[in-house]
Simulated scan of single mutants.
Amino acid sequence: MCSVPAFKTLRAAFPDALITLTGLSWSRTFVERFSEYLDEFIEFPGFPGFPEKEAQIEQIPSFLLEVQGRKYDLAFQMQGSGAISNPLVMLFGADKNAGFYLPGQYCPDSERFLSYPVHETEVVRHLRLMEFLGLPSQGEHLEFPLCTQDWEEFHEHQAKYDLPSNNYAVIHPGARSLDRRWPVEWFANVGDGLAERGLRVVLTGVAEETHLTEAVASHMKAPAINLAGQTSLGGIGALLSASRLLVSNDTGVSHIADALDIPSVVLFTASDPARWAPQNSALHRVVAWATTAMPQTVLDQVDQLLFKETVSDYQIFTNTIEHPV
């Protein structure tokens, strides 16, 4: 999601180019959703040292042969700092390569590889690479286009659960990394607080996170609608579009809310909010060092969003950055 503004910039600079994304299997639907910017997808089988997926060693030779056979004019390395990924991208056999590198480590081409901008947000970081290569930025705002199928899925849930538009809140208690998950009991307390404010509560997550949403629901006094494992990525987007706000850990769904301009409170327990947090503080509130943040802290942020209270930047800072690691 955070790379979409860079893809938009790349497409604006090369409107007729064939642009291929290689990534994990879930990225296939990402390419389909962002077909305005991306043309093709090649599934990445993993590689030794990449933490996102255990490498399928037996599939790597055929993957490299497929990529090399495309004879690309330019290969971009946009996977982190390049410490692990640069040697892999050089095996793609493209005519030219571009990306990031860490000073003192392997830099394939000083003219096209940018020193990794450590202190930038994830969105701006990718745009800095485009600008370094002479491609004018097309803006920083995230996007998440919704299609007819997404809305059809939403309307099925809406009819099944008698879900009124703009009168429910979404709680997403999951995250891929265990250390990025806020306690389910505290999510339950927030859910009850949202119910007290007159909102229906909808719980979301992938199928593997059903145990988390069930735990939240079991700890809540108010009823909740548990949609974990029942929504596609686009379906979650439509669900968020018709909601009042989102409360979630720092995970992909928070970027979807950001892209759709849906108010959110995002809990950061292990990741860096300076890198990953949404930037529009009028719509999105960040609770940093959330391992010790109590549910009332989150509900205070919810109230500021729901009831449009004016809070100074200093007040937000002292509310959210009071427990440094």
Rank of each mutant, 00 (worst) to 15 (best):
130 M>K: 05
68 Q>C: 01
258 D>W: 01
65 L>P: 00
85 S>G: 03
142 L>P: 05
128 R>H: 08
193 G>M: 05
232 S>P: 02
138 Q>D: 08
99 G>D: 13
290 A>E: 05
235 G>K: 03
300 D>S: 11
310 T>E: 13
137 S>P: 04
255 H>K: 06
114 L>R: 04
225 I>V: 14
50 F>M: 10
97 N>R: 01
83 A>N: 00
315 Q>W: 08
61 P>Q: 12
175 A>I: 09
235 G>V: 03
305 L>G: 07
301 Q>E: 15
307 F>A: 05
179 D>K: 11
184 V>L: 06
41 F>Y: 15
18 L>M: 04
159 A>T: 13
133 L>P: 03
274 A>C: 12
190 V>G: 06
268 F>E: 01
205 G>F: 13
219 H>R: 03
239 L>Q: 01
75 A>V: 01
272 D>G: 02
4 V>E: 09
209 E>L: 04
80 G>W: 02
108 P>V: 10
197 R>G: 06
6 A>F: 15
289 W>A: 15
146 L>I: 03
180 R>F: 03
243 S>M: 04
22 T>Y: 08
96 K>S: 15
173 P>G: 13
127 L>N: 14
145 P>M: 13
317 F>D: 13
190 V>W: 01
308 K>F: 12
51 P>M: 12
79 Q>L: 10
142 L>F: 05
269 T>P: 01
307 F>S: 11
50 F>D: 12
247 V>C: 10
181 R>D: 02
132 F>V: 07
230 Q>K: 15
172 H>A: 15
25 S>I: 04
258 D>E: 09
177 S>H: 04
237 G>N: 07
69 G>S: 13
68 Q>N: 06
159 A>N: 11
297 T>Y: 05
52 E>F: 15
180 R>D: 10
201 V>F: 10
278 P>C: 04
83 A>P: 00
101 Y>C: 12
176 R>I: 12
12 A>T: 08
144 F>Q: 13
276 W>T: 06
295 P>G: 02
244 R>V: 06
